[in-house]
Amino acid sequence: MNVFRILGDVSHLLAMVILLVKIWRSKSCAGISGKSQILFALVFTSRYLDLLTNFISIYNTVMKVVFLLCAYVTVYLIYGKFRKTFDSENDSFRLEFLLVPVIGLSFLENYSFTPTEILWTFSIYLESVAILPQLFMISKTGEAETITTHYLFFLGLYRALYLANWIWRYHTENFYDQIAVVSGVVQTIFYCDFFYLYITKVLKGKKLSLP
């Protein structure tokens, strides 16, 4: 465990908490892509199947449970409790355009052709594109609530910190997880234009609105 990974996990948890607080306090999921949240719940479900079989550490187990809870509670709030505020018209990204290539690739490029390994690979590939429906929705509506941009900032930051963690682990323990690293780079690249808007606009107190 290193500082980049801890900061990454904290940033990831913070993002999920910010989103839950936003939905709960505003009693609305306006501007939030329910499809992205479904994909994140799918990512954690397919990645954390070893929760009961492969004990790594208390930290690992607790965080996996917390992440799963946050993901499913968020999906419940969007499609259940506050479904009347859900903007399904603008949440129109076709999930099959993501799921089909991701499933295909996880069968083609994986470390071993076993069910748990293919599901883990699927979760890694899926996570790298899971934010696209949300970014697509923002580009369609042309703006995002400030708290939503904070959610996206910490969500993008988490995987960027994981890239630093992989560089650190490569140099200190010669650890190299190619599938996770390549997917993590792709995932972080998707956030670049958002990061630019976040830093040049939101941090200057302006509202995030796309030209």
């Binding site: 990974r5 996990d9 990831h12 070893d50 492969n54 790594i56 690992n60 965080m63 996996k64 992440f67 470390y111 071993s112 390994e117 883990w120 994981y162 963690n165 650890f175 190299y176 997880d177 190619q178 599938i179 996770a180």
Partner: peptide, 10 residues
Amino acid sequence: DQEPQGHDEL
């Protein structure tokens, strides 16, 4: 390419 089985990251 063989990689660590039992992934230890979240």
